[in-house]
Amino acid sequence: MHTPPRGIAMVGFDADDTLWRSQDFFDEAQAQFERIITRYVDLEDVGKRLYQYEARNIAFYGYGVKGMALSMVEAAVDITEARIKAADIKRIIKLAKDLLRHPVEVLGDVREAVAEVAAHYPVVLITKGDLFHQEAKVRESGLSELFRRIEVVSEKDPGTYARLLEEFHVPAARFLMVGNSLRSDIQPVLELGGWGVHVPYHLTWMHESGVQLTQGRERMREIAGIRELASAVRELDALAMQ
């Protein structure tokens, strides 16, 4: 594949809630957790209380199902003042195991959209979360052959993207990231001088929401669905070549 001397030289893709469903299953697990806890205490903000534990524990456990599970157990003990029964702790652990075993559900038109972009640009997959779980989802998705590289990282911030782009030998000004999260997929790349296509998902984890872009808006496009991706990439590529 010939890469022109200017313009977009590589396109990166997020995975969870960009290529396949994820937050739906986490939200359902949380709803079941809340039902368990409200048998012990009369609280309306169990979900918010759980998020406080999850946010604090990211530094220890990282992202993904296992970190959520440990946070749920800790929150359950604290919220119920240690009155929660061992059987219900076991139910909480089962919620996590069910998440880890859940079949991958690739979103509609994703394969065609990624393949269309990959026909014109090198594409890489950059996702964060538990290494074993993310690798399993990539395998089960049937999409792995479309990507030049697959990277599972502990965090998606400017430093991580800068490190990866150095490894890819691609300057930030020629890199475009596609994803559903402004916080993790778009904002860090824009801060480095890159480009982004935001594909909103109908659900967003609290940790990924509430982001206000302060720079680089002119280098981003938001699309209503993945079918619009190739057109958005071409538009930004033309701008990058100026």
Rank of each mutant, 00 (worst) to 15 (best):
A232N: 10
G225M: 13
E145M: 14
A136I: 07
T204H: 10
H133A: 07
F132H: 13
Y161T: 00
V199I: 15
S144K: 14
E166T: 08
R217I: 05
V153I: 09
W195H: 01
A224V: 12
R139T: 10
G196L: 03
L176M: 03
P200Y: 09
S141E: 06
L203E: 12
G196T: 03
G159C: 05
L182P: 00
G194T: 00
L176K: 03
L213E: 02
G179C: 03
R148Q: 08
G210T: 04
L165G: 08
A136T: 10
R174F: 05
M206F: 13
E140L: 13
R234C: 04
V152P: 06
I186V: 13
D237N: 11
S181K: 02
K156M: 03
H169V: 10
D237L: 02
T214K: 13
S181D: 04
V189L: 07
Q215A: 10
V178M: 01
S144W: 11
R219I: 00
V152D: 11
W195G: 00
W195C: 02
L229S: 02
P171M: 04
H169C: 09
E222H: 05
I150T: 14
V197W: 02
L165K: 12
A172Y: 06
V233K: 05
S141H: 02
M206Y: 15
E167G: 08
V211Q: 03
R217W: 11
F175N: 01
G225P: 06
M220F: 03
L190T: 00
G210A: 09
L236W: 02
A162P: 01
M220K: 03
D185S: 00
V170N: 04
M220A: 04
T204V: 14
I186A: 05
A172M: 10
V233H: 04
E228Y: 09
E145C: 08
L190C: 01
A232H: 10
S184V: 04
H198G: 07
G142K: 11
Y201V: 01
D185P: 00
L146G: 07
E208W: 10
G193M: 03
L131N: 12
W195A: 01
L236V: 00
